[in-house]
C-alpha cells in the first residue's frame, strides 16, 4: 500500500470514529425514547447557562431523599442506582438504592449527596437528569413562570423521563400538565 492510500485509510478511519460518537449517542437515546418505560418526576426548573451547549434549565427532580435502613453503607458522592416505582398520583418514587444495577428493573444512576443517620435518610442528586435545554429567552422565562405560579397557585411542574434498564432520557418538561413550550406560548405575559 503506498503512502497516499495509507493516509486515505487513516483519514477514513478517523472520519468514521468522529461520526460514530454522535451517531451512537443519538441511537442510544432514540432507542430509550422508543422502548423505555415513562416516569413522571415532580421538578423545579432553575436557569443557568452552559458555554458549550447553550441555555438550559436546571431540574431539581423529586424525590431528593430516600428512606434507607443501611444509611451508613452510603457516603458522599458515591454512585448509586435508584430503583423506580410510582405513587398513587402516578409520580415516580424511589423504592430503594442499590450499589449495582438491578436486573430487569427500571433504575436510574444517581449520586449520593449527604446522609442523615438519625432520620435514616439518604439525599440523592439526579446528576444524569438535571438539564433541559431551551432558548436563551425561554429558559429564564420558564424559571420565573414556575416561581410565580408556584407561589400563587401551588401548581407543580413535572418532567417525563423514559427509562430502559439503567439508561434514562428526558422526554419533556411540563407546566400545569402542558409541555413547557406550549405553556409559554399560551402564557406570554407570565415572564
Amino acid at each position: 500500500m503506498n503512502k497516499r492510500n495509507l493516509i486515505l485509510l487513516g483519514f477514513a478511519l478517523v472520519v468514521a470514529a468522529q461520526l460514530a460518537v454522535p451517531a451512537w449517542m443519538i441511537m442510544e437515546r432514540e432507542w430509550t425514547l422508543r422502548d423505555g418505560q415513562v416516569f413522571k418526576f415532580k421538578t423545579r426548573p432553575i436557569d443557568p447557562v452552559d458555554a458549550f451547549r447553550g441555555r438550559y434549565v436546571w431540574l431539581g427532580l423529586e424525590p431528593g431523599v430516600v428512606k434507607m435502613r443501611d444509611v451508613n453503607a452510603w457516603h458522599y458522592d458515591q454512585k448509586a442506582f435508584a430503583v423506580l416505582g410510582t405513587d398513587t398520583n402516578e409520580f415516580a418514587t424511589v423504592e430503594r438504592l442499590e450499589h449495582k444495577a438491578p436486573a430487569g428493573q427500571a433504575a436510574v444512576p444517581v449520586h449520593v449527596g449527604w446522609t442523615d443517620t438519625k432520620k435514616g435518610e439518604v439525599h440523592i442528586n439526579w446528576t444524569g437528569l438535571d438539564r433541559f435545554y431551551m432558548t436563551e429567552q425561554k429558559a429564564p422565562a420558564a424559571e420565573i413562570a414556575y416561581r410565580e405560579h408556584n407561589r400563587r397557585t401551588n401548581q407543580t411542574c413535572h418532567v417525563t423521563v423514559c427509562v430502559r434498564g439503567t439508561h434514562a432520557v428526558i422526554e419533556d418538561l411540563f407546566m400545569d400538565g402542558r409541555p413547557i413550550h406550549a405553556w409559554l406560548k399560551a402564557h406570554p405575559g407570565d415572564k
Binding site: P22, M25, I26, R29, D50, R53, G54, Y56, T127, G128, L129, D130, R131, F132, Y133, V169, I170
Partner: peptide
C-alpha cells in the same frame, strides 16, 4: 448539539 437535543447532562 446531540447533547443539547437529548438533554444529556453535563
Amino acid at each position: 448539539l446531540v447533547a443539547q437535543t437529548y438533554n444529556i447532562s453535563g
